[in-house]
Design a protein around this nucleic acid. Structure first.
Lengths: 201, 201
DNA sequence: TTTTATTGATTGAACGTTCAATAAAAAAAT
DNA sequence: ATTTTTTTATTGAACGTTCAATCAATAAAA
């Protein structure tokens, strides 16, 4: 089978297999052998393409964050409406796109969340992502209210998004994305209700 | 040193040492040796008092959940006011008491959260706790609004509490309990604003 | 003397990594 | 169009490490 140009294919395969393994038995029991078996390759190949298990885990987290960023950016680009409320809604919806990529991604995300507290490399990635969400929310709220109030609103909405998502990941039935979106949008409406809307809304 | 009646003392010591070890290096690297060293005893004693590492981890999670339940119950018992809003406020405040028991507890909690997805024993504990929070919130909201609306409110507030707490655990500076409480209370006020209050409030 | 508490060396299993060997494809030579 | 050579991809057994659990030995209290 050895063909040229396997690198991107195998990398993708192994990243997906990592999520599947974590979904199956959790990060603690996701051994290189189990991951390799999910991908249908041998264990040694992981060191070959990622330098080791840690490299694979980091690449997997990068993939998840990158997918999330893409989902949010796409929804914002598709907006006909430029008003802050529409942007904020798009950020919410984008964040719950993670559930389209469903179960495996959710469990992997939570596993990395816990793990990032003690692995500097993952911690950096996690913080960049956190700050991106907060910062996006903040700059939109800023167009509708004073700075301190905008910060409070951003912290609140970020917490609401993460909280809904966390509870969804822990529920055996998985996240009900529509219901979660609705709750987040209602909260957003309440945050905005005290502030006069832009002309369009 | 061997005295009689060591069991409760050692158990408490080892549970505390478990949280310290998880706070220090994470659940994955919290070996029995490291935990034992934190408690100033030998590794073998863990199997003696808890039947093994898993037993110690389960006991540690039980302790955390029990402390949380006690904190909430105490605040509710201390209420002069019987109105639903006061109870809901007490539930919020009780949940952010976890931060008094500070850093180690927060990290341990999050670690168990992730781990509980794949360990049936921990999962059971986690779900009982989840349901207790939801159910407490729900029955209070129920006194102010129709059932379906109460459920929505309970889901929202539970998500807000967990979200704030999660983000606090991940922040290097730790959770700002006062700020989190304030955000949760504001959200609660917004949830109740559409409903006429009871006589007292 | 009996009971209770504790130690720490030992054991066996499991893990990630390494590396020589292999096999297939691509390139070069005939 | 073959054959040979080179390159790339992959395997899987071996190695060294680490861990949880065990248990005979020990020591203090009862």
């Amino acid at each position: 089978m050895p063909k040229v140009g396997m690198q991107p294919i195998r990398r993708q395969q192994l990243i997906k297999a990592t999520m599947a393994a974590i979904d199956e038995v959790g990060l603690a029991d996701a051994t290189v052998m189990r991951i390799a078996r999910h991908a249908g390759v041998s264990a040694g190949i992981i060191s070959h393409y990622f330098g080791g298990k840690d490299g694979l885990l980091e690449a997997t987290m990068r993939q998840i964050l990158s997918d999330l960023g893409t989902a949010v950016a796409a929804r914002r680009r598709a907006l006909a409406d430029e008003c802050p409320r529409a942007h904020l809604g798009a950020i919410i919806d984008g964040n719950f796109d993670r559930s389209q990529i469903t179960g495996p991604v959710a469990k992997t995300w939570l596993a990395f969340w816990a793990s990032s507290m003690h692995k500097p490399t993952l911690q950096r990635l996690q913080r960049v992502n956190d700050h991106r969400l907060y910062s996006n929310l903040c700059s939109q709220f800023r167009r509708l209210m004073p700075r301190e109030e905008a910060r409070r609103a951003a912290r609140g909405l970020a917490a609401m998004i993460d909280g809904l998502w966390l509870r969804g990941a822990l529920t055996p039935a998985g996240l009900d994305a529509d219901r979660a979106r609705r709750l987040a949008h209602e909260y957003l409406d309440q945050l905005l209700v005290t502030h006069p809307s832009s002309p369009l809304s």
